[in-house]
Amino acid sequence: MTHAGVRIAILTDETGWHTGRLKKAFRARGAQARCVDLADCRIDTTWQPHGLVVPGFGHTLPDAVFVRGIAGGTFEQVTLRLGILHALRESGVPVYNDARAIERSVDKSMTSFLLHRAGVPTPATWAVESSAFAQRVLMREAAAGRQVVLKPLFGSQGHGLKRLGARRGGLAPLPSLGPYRQVAYLQRYVAGERPGFDWRVMVIGGRAVAAMRRVGGKGWIHNFAQGAVCEPADLAAPLAQTAVQAAAALGLDYAGVDLIPNPDDAARPLVLEVNGVAAWRGLQSVTPVDLAAALVDDLLDRKLAAQRRLLDQTDPAAVDVAVAALRGRHA
């Protein structure tokens, strides 16, 4: 099915390989896609009829939005950008992934909470503002012969990770939380095989579509950006099911789910992180699945189609009756 005339906004702060693949996939389906920086969008209540401006779309709104990237900035800037995503959804525009889902995945503490609540296996996690409490966690874990990983609450690509715990010569103290914005996000370290690896699974529309192993890298950190080597991996049932459950727990349309083997239960791999604005260049290099095409198909055939079915089911006569009734109440 083609989607001639459908207009898509790819929200991104930079263009390149990913946006090129997406635009090509949208063209193949007959849709028009253009890149828009969220920083250039605005809420403007004088702009009729929506009060929302998306550059390149005039006084109309896109038929759907694909969120490829949100630039960092001040708290106020990021709040406004996420607010625009919320406003698009409130205006009836399908947003893939929407703001609420992205907020859940960007905040590692909320990710851990939601995974735990949904029964998705994930390492023990603590997120606190108290250095004293964080130090007690570190001491308690070290006394049990375990280590913990200190991570930035907001971060990606393996930057800022520190492994802490018992070492020769005693227990090293908790480092200053200044570089971590005064928040300690601690996750129990799970020792793996040698050489170390993790899995990245791409979940699209509630289905695991591709997986890879990331081997090596910077010591115990296996991110592609840290030098890990990407290898194809089979989508075994436990891996696929756990990744799908993780994406569902956060309400994500698409997600890159990072997992490691569970030394206590091979049938239940542990979820480390869930990425709501996932890159897939490394994964694409080791899978025959056209990931951009799969993402575009899911957006058009499921997300956009569901919104249009909802609109088609709305009875205009019923809407007119409801509006008249409301007017009568306030006459």
Rank of each mutant, 00 (worst) to 15 (best):
A293I: 04
R34S: 12
A87C: 01
C230T: 07
I84Y: 09
L311R: 15
F113Y: 15
A240T: 12
L85Q: 07
S176P: 00
R34H: 07
V244S: 12
T111R: 04
I204S: 14
G206Q: 13
K24F: 11
K24L: 15
A64C: 13
T74Q: 11
A87Y: 00
D107E: 03
R81I: 01
A324D: 08
A127D: 03
V277T: 15
G217W: 04
S105Y: 07
G196W: 02
L177D: 01
T60V: 07
R281C: 02
D44M: 02
T19F: 10
Q157G: 00
R214P: 01
P94H: 14
I84V: 14
G192K: 13
Q187T: 11
L82G: 02
A278F: 10
K108T: 13
R302G: 01
G217K: 05
F224V: 13
R167G: 07
F57Q: 07
R207K: 15
N223V: 02
L259S: 09
K218Y: 06
L295Y: 09
H116N: 06
A71E: 08
P316C: 13
F57A: 07
H18A: 07
I84K: 06
A144T: 05
S105C: 12
T46W: 01
L38I: 02
P121R: 07
Q182A: 03
T79G: 05
A228T: 10
V53R: 08
L239K: 09
V53Y: 11
P94S: 09
A246C: 04
D37G: 11
A266C: 05
R100V: 06
R302W: 08
V190K: 00
P238E: 15
R329Y: 10
